[in-house]
Simulated assay, not measured.
Amino acid sequence: MGVFAKEAEISTPLPPAKAFKTFVVDLDTLMPKVAPQAIKSVELLQGDGGPRTIKKITFAEGNLIT
């Protein structure tokens, strides 16, 4: 298993709190709706979805999010 970091700057009309929730907190539920081929699985490792929750998101091979 590897770890990677990606930095991007995105302009959006959303308020910062809503943009963070959408693109970071809810990524595992948003991506399957937008690009179902991109995510292979999502596993909840710890927590209940609130603060300190740890999720393992496995991206499908060959479908890097750019």
Rank of each mutant, 00 (worst) to 15 (best):
residue 54 I to L: 07
residue 3 V to M: 12
residue 38 A to V: 12
residue 62 G to S: 03
residue 25 V to I: 05
residue 53 T to L: 10
residue 56 K to Y: 01
residue 17 A to D: 05
residue 30 L to R: 13
residue 4 F to L: 12
residue 41 S to C: 13
residue 7 E to Q: 15
residue 61 E to P: 07
residue 12 T to K: 11
residue 60 A to W: 03
residue 31 M to F: 00
residue 42 V to Y: 01
residue 30 L to V: 08
residue 7 E to L: 13
residue 7 E to W: 13
residue 43 E to G: 00
residue 11 S to F: 12
residue 15 P to R: 10
residue 59 F to A: 07
residue 58 T to H: 08
residue 57 I to R: 11
residue 25 V to E: 07
residue 57 I to D: 00
residue 40 K to N: 04
residue 56 K to I: 04
residue 64 L to K: 14
residue 19 A to T: 06
residue 57 I to A: 04
residue 18 K to R: 13
residue 52 R to C: 10
residue 31 M to R: 10
residue 5 A to V: 04
residue 18 K to E: 09
residue 41 S to P: 06
residue 55 K to N: 06
residue 8 A to H: 11
residue 13 P to A: 12
residue 41 S to T: 08
residue 58 T to P: 01
residue 5 A to W: 10
residue 42 V to M: 04
residue 1 M to H: 07
residue 32 P to V: 01
residue 59 F to H: 10
residue 29 T to K: 15
residue 4 F to W: 12
residue 50 G to N: 14
residue 27 L to G: 05
residue 61 E to V: 09
residue 33 K to E: 02
residue 15 P to Y: 07
residue 16 P to Y: 02
residue 35 A to S: 10
residue 40 K to Q: 06
residue 26 D to G: 09
residue 20 F to N: 02
residue 24 V to N: 09
residue 14 L to Q: 14
residue 33 K to H: 00
residue 14 L to V: 05
residue 8 A to L: 11
residue 65 I to N: 09
residue 13 P to L: 06
residue 31 M to H: 05
residue 2 G to A: 13
residue 65 I to G: 08
residue 26 D to H: 13
residue 64 L to T: 08
residue 17 A to V: 14
residue 14 L to D: 14
residue 52 R to E: 15
residue 10 I to H: 05
residue 51 P to M: 10
residue 3 V to N: 12
residue 6 K to C: 01
residue 26 D to P: 09
residue 1 M to G: 09
residue 44 L to V: 09
residue 51 P to I: 09
residue 43 E to P: 02
residue 46 Q to M: 14
residue 39 I to N: 02
residue 7 E to Y: 15
residue 49 G to F: 04
residue 66 T to I: 13
residue 53 T to V: 06
residue 33 K to Q: 06
residue 61 E to A: 15
residue 52 R to T: 05
residue 51 P to Q: 12
residue 10 I to L: 10
residue 26 D to L: 13
